Computed example of a mutant assay.
Amino acid sequence: MTKHSQAARRLKVLWDDLRAGDPGAVHAARKLTRRAQAELRVAEAGRQTERAWRDLRRAAAPLRDHDVAGGHLREALTELGVPADTLAYFDRTWAERRAALLAGTVWPGRPRGFDLASGWKGRARRLARQDGRKLQDSGEVALASHEAELWHAWRKRLKRYRYTLDLLGEVPAVVTDTLEALGRFQDAEVVLGLLHADPELLRYERARLIAREEVARHAAQRQVRELFPALAAQLTAPD
């Protein structure tokens, strides 16, 4: 029995808002590209459709990263008790940076809809089993390393596993909890990258902001390590 792609259907509703740069639509579209990645593995949509979804994910990434980083920075500035005029200045300059990013964004054409071919559930179960074994091994490697790229690559593969499970009906809490912690780790990496790359960005608060994100990064890593035994049991569990 075939099934029509949920990602493509939902994207159609978001499309105009996405192209206008609406933050909520950008966030939702990024998530849909990850769902589509899982769906495409059990579909017969062709490489052109796969490339279209990949291109959309890459186009939306800078705006989404900017929005996430801005949220963390503003929250930090509020916690640090900066004056109201500093917050106002941040809001104005961050909005200007976003407007420039949006102006430079080249949106690809909207990816076409596709069907999950007959037998997709069986393929999804097999892929989830294969993913689980590989994710346990790559997770052990990432958690033993201080290389952020290894953590980021593992997070991307775990996302795909999460959406494959979602296709089949239910995602265990340990998977979503681990992804949430990995997401905070990656957000800290993005914010730290911005602060280190631009010494003039919030220069009077820069040292305290860097310290806060370093704390957040280490806390997220600690949480992932604490969750990993339960996650590993899920990844290697029989159907």
Rank of each mutant, 00 (worst) to 15 (best):
residue 41 R to Q: 15
residue 90 F to H: 14
residue 147 E to W: 07
residue 75 E to Y: 09
residue 37 Q to G: 03
residue 89 Y to A: 13
residue 60 A to L: 06
residue 139 G to E: 06
residue 135 L to C: 00
residue 69 A to S: 15
residue 47 R to S: 11
residue 140 E to W: 13
residue 83 P to D: 11
residue 33 T to Y: 01
residue 63 L to N: 00
residue 43 A to Q: 01
residue 132 G to E: 01
residue 126 R to M: 00
residue 126 R to T: 04
residue 38 A to I: 05
residue 78 T to Q: 15
residue 94 W to C: 03
residue 104 G to V: 15
residue 120 W to V: 06
residue 68 V to R: 13
residue 94 W to V: 03
residue 64 R to G: 03
residue 140 E to I: 03
residue 73 L to Y: 02
residue 141 V to Q: 06
residue 41 R to E: 15
residue 91 D to G: 10
residue 123 R to Q: 06
residue 125 R to N: 10
residue 93 T to F: 07
residue 57 R to G: 04
residue 138 S to Q: 03
residue 70 G to I: 15
residue 92 R to L: 14
residue 134 K to W: 05
residue 129 R to T: 12
residue 45 A to S: 12
residue 78 T to G: 07
residue 97 R to E: 12
residue 147 E to Y: 09
residue 101 L to Y: 05
residue 59 A to M: 11
residue 69 A to F: 10
residue 86 T to Q: 09
residue 79 E to C: 08
residue 37 Q to P: 00
residue 42 V to N: 03
residue 89 Y to W: 14
residue 76 A to Y: 06
residue 119 G to I: 02
residue 130 Q to Y: 03
residue 146 H to K: 08
residue 80 L to R: 12
residue 118 S to L: 09
residue 128 A to R: 05
residue 81 G to I: 13
residue 71 G to W: 07
residue 43 A to T: 01
residue 99 A to E: 14
residue 36 A to W: 09
residue 60 A to F: 07
residue 117 A to S: 09
residue 86 T to M: 04
residue 79 E to F: 08
residue 85 D to G: 02
residue 148 A to Y: 01
residue 58 R to I: 14
residue 68 V to E: 14
residue 63 L to M: 14
residue 138 S to M: 01
residue 145 S to M: 08
residue 41 R to Y: 10
residue 102 L to H: 10
residue 47 R to K: 15
residue 80 L to K: 11
residue 73 L to T: 02
residue 58 R to K: 15
residue 101 L to V: 12
residue 37 Q to H: 13
residue 129 R to L: 08
residue 101 L to T: 04
residue 51 R to K: 14
residue 54 R to W: 13
residue 133 R to L: 07
residue 131 D to V: 01
residue 32 L to I: 15
residue 32 L to S: 09
residue 116 L to A: 00
residue 146 H to Q: 13
residue 102 L to E: 03
residue 122 G to E: 09
residue 95 A to S: 13
residue 129 R to G: 00
residue 32 L to M: 11
